[in-house]
Design a protein around this nucleic acid. Structure first.
Lengths: 255, 255
DNA sequence: CGCCTCATTGATGTATTTCAAAATTTGTGG
DNA sequence: CCACAAATTTTGAAATACATCAATGAGGCG
């Protein structure tokens, strides 16, 4: 079972452990889960609107995003997923896709058949609860996005997304100090924030101008966390991280 | 167990059955679930940001809504819930509330202790799957709201919400022909759609002017379903109704 | 070097907000 | 069932955040 890419199910176990404590038997069951590792090119649809997937994927490397396609070529990006995330766990119980899932970058994913997953969850109700919890955290992210789109203006929206992407990456060891990769292009960030890429660009200039962040080379650096969270009205409760109350603490651990 | 208000767990069974077929043993377990029926006044917070609920509630009568409170008195309504819905099922696995849940109208709800629920789900994995599915449908609603807020303009947003509220009420027998109650006030609809109540009001005039809907006395009547869904770019896939493919059919049944 | 993608900037248009007030409906006690 | 208060809806005028259109500039890469 174990092979390159950091032992896929190990990664999942670590992620789920950060969400709610796994028992030893849950962990063992997880490590036994059959799966296939696959390399996917960038900008490649994994599942499309209308599909009926028979497997779920775990992101091992790269970025994945979820989007709704609109008439007239419009697109709303619903969420971004990084290493350790289970972006289409929902297809286990929601049989028909109501949106699309695609790679943003070249990705390495592990595919897990629904049948195998169901069998393991039947024998490990605690694990089922943890995955259920994971999908509820996904929903919590959605709620926060709704609040952003509905009631924050562009500056706050962008700041809020930056806070979220930073903390989520830090939680899985992908940040360094107050810097993290910022993989989506401006057009993609805009499609996720309900903005035009033109306007997003102007907002970014403002954020830089006020000394809140630095951007460059696909990296986001937060220069003033307190000011950024203030502009964003950011409260990390919605991330539902299990043991990571303070940003500063993990920043130290992650480096 | 059975008492007024149409036997609470019967109502839940019927709702869940509309979401995915229940086995007889699932249904029996459901009907045995201990619960307390409570009357709640209108505009009353059921659970608040930061709370750690030990029970979940089932709506038997009235409307409930979920909202995030922002600085400066702002508010984003995240979703509306009607009879048969389980609005805070999530607290079963997400222990700390990241938003608020409140009654819109006077309500009758059934309260189910998490411990009792967990015990029943442990013995009925199929039922657990159905409830998991219910929470995933909740998330599907959120996704659609994100798309609306991010990429539709006011007219389409309002039209989309009307289509959704009509179909959801029809699915539980609360619609008559092409009419249904429209309980939220304009200020609440606005807070849910990321609009000002002033602008929402102008949009409503436009919808009426174009002959798409009629409004009055807390009732929404859809005058031109095809035109309304066209304006909204509405596709009901996201509702994930199990056996209700065509609006026309249930409209007839519901009357 | 030249091509392609992505980021940046300017000028102009518009959807929506804000502020303020009037009209209408709803609820309630007498 | 009416009178009155409160809540809700409706309208106008002015301000603004963001979109649209169009072009230029700055990297990567074969």
């Amino acid at each position: 079972m174990p092979n390159g890419y950091n032992a896929p199910m190990e990664m999942l176990a670590r992620k789920l452990d950060s969400i709610s404590r796994l028992t030893e038997s849950d962990r063992a069951a997880l490590l036994d889960l059959p799966h296939t590792v696959r390399n996917l090119p960038a900008r490649h649809d994994i599942v499309r609107f209308g599909d009926r997937p028979t497997q779920s994927c775990l992101v091992l490397q790269g970025w994945v995003y979820r989007y709704a396609a609109l008439a007239e070529g419009g697109r709303q990006i619903l969420s971004f997923y990084i290493a350790g995330d289970l972006p289409d766990l929902q297809s286990l119980h929601l049989h028909r896709m109501d949106h699309n899932l695609a790679t943003l970058t070249p990705c390495v994913v592990a595919l897990i058949a629904h049948d195998d997953l169901r069998a393991v969850l039947l024998r490990n109700p605690g694990l089922a609860g943890t995955l259920w919890r994971d999908s509820l955290i996904d929903a919590a992210h959605y709620r926060e996005r709704i609040t952003s789109l509905g009631r924050r203006q562009a500056l706050g929206r962008v700041a809020h997304l930056f806070c979220e992407l930073y903390l989520r990456q830090k939680a899985v060891g992908l940040a360094r100090g107050l810097s993290c990769p910022l993989v989506p292009k401006q057009a993609e960030l805009a499609d996720s924030l309900g903005l035009t890429s033109v306007h997003l660009n102007r907002v970014l200039r403002t954020l830089r101008g006020r000394g809140l962040v630095t951007l460059g080379g696909g990296t986001l650096t937060i220069e003033d966390w307190d000011a950024l969270t203030a502009v964003a009205e950011f409260d990390q409760t919605f991330l539902h991280l299990a043991n990571n109350p303070l940003p500063a603490r993990e920043a130290a651990e992650a480096v």
